[in-house]
Amino acid sequence: MSEPILEMTDVSKRYRTAGGFGRGRKGFLAVDGVSLHVERGEALGLVGESGSGKSTLARMANGLVVPTSGTVRTDGQDVARLGRRGLRRLRRNVAMVFQDPLASLNPLQTVRQTLENVFRAHGETTSTAELVALLESVGLGADYLGRYPHEASGGQLQRVAVARALALKPDLIIADEPTSALDVSVRAQILNLLADLQRDQGISFLHVSHDLAVIRLYSDRVAVMQRGRIVETGPSDEIFRSPQHPCTRALVEATPEAELPA
């Protein structure tokens, strides 16, 4: 079996807090000795409440957050040992999609400029035909190339953000609450798009979300986080059919159902 696309071993992250204010002088332990892996082609869902450390953990996968201890191996490389160039190469391979596309896209740049910048940052050139093909792969027409972020809807912008993530053909996409800011009717479009990318292009996903129902449908495996630790992990159906840890159970029970009692 091939090596996992992402392998974290006993990673911790302690944030320093200013002058003993807040969580005390020792700082705040956001991630506490977590081990986790994402197989190639797999979608791993990371769920937990706010402050559980899920975003911090996800950001360690591509070196955006440097762990205080432990090792992160992404695509077979020890992230801590990569220099600036190495990190840059790594980030070609590990793309990110964030919650709010309006915040993650430059309002002063057209979609064309935004996409071209990705290629430029990695010393590559691109053609209009390539950019159009890229937009088409996320269900947008060529006319979007000339648009600015304020000229598109939230769902269309999130498609642009996905196109940007796909530009350099990554093996792993870290999606941090990618549909939380979208309308219900549009959310399903983006989730289906991400599922198609996984199925058709074999891209692996680390999907961070607070929404258990979304994670259940769109992840192969689930890891549940609570106060910086992973408290339960397993195949998606199994976790939600018979949650073992009290934290998972509490989350499952608290999730309101769009369903009348049988």
Partner: peptide, 25 residues
């Protein structure tokens, strides 16, 4: 288009998809 956690929707390991409404509100 609303995802449900409902145990009755058990997929038997098969991944189900939501039916999206095309376009935007």
């Amino acid at each position: 288009a609303t995802p449900r956690l409902d145990a009755r929707l058990d997929t038997g390991g098969e991944r189900t998809r939501l039916r999206a409404i095309p376009g935007a509100p």
